[in-house]
C-alpha cells in the first residue's frame, strides 16, 4: 500500500526547502535569463539574421527556458540529497516506513515543481520580448515535466555519489553546463561545422532544447521521432536507477 501521507510530507519538505531560500533558488535564474535575453537576444540578436523564419531573440527563448530548468532541477536535487547526507538528517527518512520508490518519487516531484516554477518565471520574463504564443502547450508542459524528472534524478545520483562539495560541483561544471551550452541553446545546429553537428546530435540536451523549441515556436532542427522517445527512455532509466541506488543504500546507508 502506498504511504501517500509520507510521500506528500517528504514532497512538501522538498518544496518548502527551496521556496524558503527563493532568493538563492528562483531569483538567480530569473536575473540570468533577463540578462541573456537582453544582451544576446535584444542587443546582439538585432544584428543577427533570422533562423528558420524566426528572430534570434525568439530562437533563444526556449533554449534559455530549458537551460534554467535543467540547471535548477539538477542543482535542487543534488544539493538537497547531498546536504541530507552531509548533515546526517537523511537518517530521519531512512528509518521511516517510506518505500524507496516513494522516497525517490518525493524528491523528484520536489525537483519537478521547482522546474515548473523556473519554467513559468522564464516564460513570464520572455513575454517582455516576444508574443508568448505556444505552438503545442501539451507538449510544452510535458517536456518541462519530463526533463525536470531526468535532471532531478541525475541530481540525486550525483548527490549520492559526491563525498564533498568539490565532487558535487564537478558534474555541474564539467558535464551539465558544457552539454547545455553545446545543446543548441544559443545557436542553430546549421551554423556549426558538420563535424560539430555530429557531436551535437550525440548530446541528449540538444533534443530536449529542440523539442521545447518545437513546442513553443513550431520549428525543429532535430528528428523529433528520435528525440522524444530518447527523452522518455532517459527519464524512465534515470528514475529507476535512482530507486535502485536508494534500495542498495548507495553511500547513504553505512
Amino acid at each position: 500500500m502506498v504511504n501517500w501521507i509520507g510521500f506528500y510530507t517528504l514532497t512538501k519538505r522538498e518544496i518548502s526547502r527551496f521556496l524558503k531560500v527563493w532568493s538563492q533558488t528562483i531569483l538567480p535564474t530569473a536575473i540570468t535569463t533577463l540578462l541573456y535575453l537582453f544582451v544576446f537576444g535584444f542587443a546582439i540578436g538585432r544584428i543577427l539574421p533570422d533562423i528558420n523564419g524566426i528572430t534570434y531573440l525568439e530562437f533563444i527563448i526556449p533554449g534559455l527556458l530549458m537551460m534554467g530548468l535543467i540547471t535548477s532541477t539538477y542543482a535542487n536535487n543534488s544539493t538537497s540529497i547531498f546536504m541530507m547526507k552531509w548533515l546526517n538528517f537523511i537518517e530521519g527518512i531512512l528509518v521511516s516506513p517510506l518505500s524507496y520508490i516513494e522516497m525517490v518519487g518525493a524528491f523528484i516531484l520536489g525537483g519537478i515543481v521547482r522546474g515548473l516554477i523556473i519554467g513559468t518565471v522564464v516564460y513570464l520574463i520572455s513575454l517582455f520580448f516576444y508574443s508568448g504564443s505556444i505552438f503545442n502547450p501539451i507538449l510544452f508542459i510535458s517536456l518541462m515535466i519530463i526533463v525536470s524528472l531526468i535532471f532531478s534524478s541525475l541530481g540525486l545520483i550525483t548527490g549520492l555519489w559526491a563525498e564533498d562539495w568539490d565532487q558535487l560541483n564537478i558534474w555541474s561544471t564539467f558535464i551539465i553546463t558544457p552539454l547545455v551550452f553545446l545543446g543548441g541553446v544559443f545557436h542553430s545546429i546549421s551554423l556549426v561545422p558538420e563535424s560539430l553537428q555530429i557531436v551535437t546530435k550525440m548530446n541528449p540536451i540538444f533534443y530536449m532544447v529542440d523539442a521545447l523549441r518545437y513546442s513553443m515556436l513550431g520549428i525543429s532542427e532535430s528528428n523529433l521521432a528520435l528525440g522524444l522517445p530518447l527523452i522518455i527512455i532517459l527519464a524512465v532509466s534515470f528514475f529507476f536507477f535512482t530507486v535502485y541506488l536508494f534500495k542498495i543504500g548507495y553511500k547513504i546507508r553505512r
Binding site: 501521507i5 509520507g6 527518512i93 521511516s96 516506513p97 517510506l98
Partner: peptide, 10 residues
C-alpha cells in the same frame, strides 16, 4: 514532518 513520514495525518 517526522510523524508525517509514518503516514499519520497532519
Amino acid at each position: 514532518y517526522q510523524c508525517g513520514y509514518y503516514g499519520i495525518p497532519k
